[in-house]
């Protein structure tokens, strides 16, 4: 039974996936930042292309980031609300986990990978993963992170030492990091769905709480203030 897999931690990505395999049945990606506008129409498109009825979906899987705020929230609230309306479970998987699992599969000689994504404000989100020997590729161990910091601070902390460095954040600061960015550069929605399935089967929690990693800016809005509650 197919699942809907959504990630809005970077670009907008949505796919209908058969989590066994995993096999992507239909996929849409957009580099545009208009997550809240484009996501729902793209969901309609992938369902149409995969010839999967809404009622055939078995679950909704969503990337929980970390990511800058508004786009990530559009993905999370869409996934949660779709699951509510379709009466199916919703599973959250950190987007960096999907990059890490895909990277370990793509680089069979690597023992550890550092996954980086763009946090803006000259910072990167980072997480380092280790292969679990003898296990399936869905079994990864987090060595460090997820965290947010400046690229030079990540280098000083030794996070890149001896690791294959991947993710959409890697090419942005390749010279500061002193590494050659490797694939994958984007979240694989099949891997995201496979991780959700593996974790659920192992009885692990798959919360859809967003990984903000930053406190909100607390400059009050000048535009709208209220009076009477």
């Amino acid at each position: 039974m197919p699942v809907l897999s959504i990630d809005t931690s970077g670009e907008i990505a949505v796919a209908v996936v058969d989590p066994r395999g995993p096999r992507v049945l239909a996929e849409r990606r957009s580099p545009e930042r208009r997550h809240a506008e484009l996501l729902a129409p793209l969901v309609v498109e992938v369902l149409g292309e995969a010839a999967v009825a809404r009622s055939d979906l078995e679950a909704v899987v969503v990337g929980t980031g970390p990511a800058p705020f508004t786009g990530l929230r559009a993905g999370l609230v869409t996934a949660r609300t779709l699951a509510l309306a379709l009466a199916v479970p919703v599973h959250g998987v950190p987007s960096l986990d999907a990059l890490g699992a895909a990277a370990l599969a793509a680089h069979p000689d690597a023992r550890e990978v550092l996954v980086l994504s763009d946090a803006r404000r000259r910072e990167l989100y980072a997480a380092r993963y280790r292969r679990v020997d003898g296990a399936t590729r869905d079994a990864i161990t987090v060595v460090a992170g997820p965290l947010v910091d400046r690229p030079d601070a990540l280098v000083q902390a030794g996070l890149a030492d001896g690791a294959v460095v991947v993710g959409p954040g890697a090419p942005l600061y390749a010279d500061v990091l002193g590494v050659e960015p490797r694939e994958p550069a984007h979240v694989d929605l099949g891997v995201l769905a496979a991780l959700a399935r593996a974790r659920t089967e192992r009885g692990e929690a798959t919360p859809t709480e967003p990984l903000y990693l930053r406190r909100p800016d607390v400059a009050p809005s000048a535009a709208r203030k209220r009076v009477t509650g």
Binding site: A36, V43, V77, A79, T81, A85, A223
Partner: peptide
């Protein structure tokens, strides 16, 4: 009218409902 971030959460939820319920 309103604040973009809050409006984005509401419209995303509403679209998901409309889509799922057809």
């Amino acid at each position: 009218p309103g604040l973009v971030g809050p409006l984005t959460v509401g419209t995303s939820a509403a679209k998901a409902l409309a889509l799922a319920l057809d």
